Simulated scan of single mutants.
Amino acid sequence: MAHPYLTEEHEMFRKAFRSFLKKEAEPFYEQWEEQQWIPRSFWEKLGEYGYLCPQVDEKYGGSGADFGYSVVINEELERIGSSLVGVGLHNDIVVPYIESYGTEEQKKKWLPKCVTGEIITAIAMTEPGAGSDLANIQSTAVKDGDEYIINGQKTFITNGIHADLVLVACKTDPGAIPKHKGISLIVVEANTPGFSKGQKLKKVGLHAQDTAELFFDECRVPQTNLLGKEGEGFRYLMEKLQQERLVVAINAQVAAEEMFELTLEYTKQRKAFGRSISSFQSIQFELVEMKTEIEIGRTFLDQLIAEHMEGKDVVAKVSMAKWWITELAKKVASKCMQLHGGYGYMEEYKIARRYRDIPVAAIYAGTNEIMKTIIAKKLGL
């Protein structure tokens, strides 16, 4: 269905980007999954053709494009495979922090290279003992002269291995009451002494996407790397999580749509008892139910994206979408694998990869249990 917030220019952009991915990503994706790595050369090509951070202001090398272009990029990347999620994180989650809260000097220093792919970004929030409960992170940044000394550990960091620039959430005031008032965001560059990356973490799915632990041991960074104001980090995170969770919902929606189309085609071709299994009423009902719920998800999501682009506060609705659509995608994955029969369990069939890739969408960017808690608060409960 047509997205009401997209223009003819957006669709022309989609056509060009889809053509780019057909040449530069689709033929290599299985190889990337097997080697569990997306080469930096792909990031550089994305930058060369203008597919990284299109929203960045032209004076920093971007196109000044609206969020509709980001939607197109995220949708087309997801159609290739979920392991490309790190591109969306760079474009629409990390770089916007620098755009919104960075100084002019910080923007000039980092944004142009984020656009070209010379710099790949990550954001480090989660710790071994603190995930959704961000107020209880233990990583600290203590002032020493004109520097911060950072100590701590982060885990499950998307783009963690590739990252040249990491936004680190840490406590600059460990004694602050309430706790979240002591959190700040500090930018750490990859070559900083005291900063190290652990091995690439082995995951159930998203095999080509690099996820890592990060370590900070007496890591010294200049105070000029503070992003925004000291003690305001938690507020910044809350402000940006709306778009982060919206991106997760977009990816989950596209994954559900892709899984359905794969399965619809398979049931038409697969024969049993002398006829296509799509002719059996029980199979038809399964397909009809999935298609209906997927259409409901798309309608809600499109309305939500339009409101987000208008600058509206849609935190409650985004939380609903992140929860409901990721759960829908998990349900679709399970049903679609079942409808593929034994072949659905074979790695050569795309549904197998989708089945293991989608569950984490209900976990990252805030678990779905946290989404329900946010919705309850917004309802005054």
Score class of each variant (00 low, 15 high):
Glu99Tyr: 09
Gly102Lys: 11
Thr103Phe: 05
Thr103Asp: 04
Glu104Pro: 03
Glu105Gly: 02
Lys108Ser: 14
Lys109Met: 11
Lys113Tyr: 15
Lys113Asn: 11
Lys113Ala: 11
Cys114Pro: 00
Thr116Met: 09
Gly117Ala: 13
Glu118Met: 10
Ile119Gln: 04
Ala122Gln: 02
Ala122Met: 08
Met125Glu: 09
Thr126Gly: 10
Glu127Val: 01
Ala130Tyr: 11
Gly131Pro: 03
Gly131Phe: 03
Ser132Asn: 06
Ser132Trp: 02
Ser132Lys: 01
Ser132Val: 08
Asp133Tyr: 14
Leu134Asp: 00
Ala135His: 09
Ala135Trp: 05
Asn136Ile: 01
Gln138Gly: 07
Ala141Asp: 06
Val142Tyr: 05
Val142Ile: 01
Lys143Asn: 02
Lys143Tyr: 00
Asp144Cys: 05
Asp146Lys: 15
Glu147Phe: 14
Tyr148Cys: 00
Asn151Thr: 08
Gln153Met: 12
Phe156Thr: 02
Asn159Thr: 10
Ile161Ala: 02
Ile161Gln: 05
His162Phe: 13
Ala163Ile: 00
Asp164Ser: 10
Leu165His: 02
Leu167His: 04
Cys170Lys: 06
Lys171Trp: 06
Ile177Ser: 05
Ile177Val: 15
Ile177Pro: 04
His180Lys: 09
Lys181His: 06
Ser184Pro: 08
Ser184Asn: 09
Ser184Asp: 00
Leu185Gly: 05
Leu185Glu: 03
Val188Gly: 06
Asn191Pro: 14
Asn191Gln: 15
Asn191Arg: 14
Thr192Glu: 10
Phe195Met: 05
Lys200Arg: 15
Leu201Phe: 14
Leu201Pro: 14
Leu201Asn: 13
Leu201Lys: 14
Lys202Gln: 15
Lys202Trp: 13
Lys203Tyr: 14
Val204Trp: 15
Gly205Val: 09
Leu206Tyr: 00
Gln209Ile: 12
Asp210Ser: 14
Phe215Leu: 13
Glu218Lys: 13
Cys219Ser: 06
